[in-house]
């Protein structure tokens, strides 16, 4: 399962982690986000070498602001606290797996 991350836990759960962390910025009112949700869970169930997190942008506006999220769903891959890959809109599982290899 993916991990819900908040402004309070983002530093510890995402930025402080050396290996790849996928963050799915989403909101409950966003239709395309609901389509992407199951794919993210599928990835979380399969991939052991990366951490899979979700940030609700409604509840965490400061994080959305910091990473300049102006459209969702938005995916970002962090490595050692830095963004190494990002994608906008719903992505296929293959694309997400590819992003995690970067």
């Amino acid at each position: 399962m993916s991990l819900q991350v908040t402004e309070a836990t983002f530093q510890e759960e995402v930025l402080a982690v050396p290996g790849p962390v996928l963050v799915d910025f989403w909101a409950p009112w966003c239709g395309p986000c609901r389509m992407l949700g199951p794919v993210i869970e599928e990835v979380a169930g399969e991939v052991k070498e990366a951490k899979i997190c979700k940030v609700n942008v409604d509840d965490n506006p400061d994080l959305a602001g910091k990473y300049q999220i102006n459209a969702i769903p938005a995916l970002m891959v962090f490595k050692g606290g830095k963004v190494v890959a990002s994608a906008l809109g719903v992505q296929s599982k293959a694309t997400i797996l590819e992003m995690l290899k970067k």
Binding site: A27, W29, C30, G31, Q68, I69, N70, A71, I72, L88
Partner: peptide, 17 residues
Amino acid sequence: LEGKGVSYCAVCDGFFF
């Protein structure tokens, strides 16, 4: 500027504006 202010879906992204 796509995703940095340019959007193709008001229902999806209007909230950010």
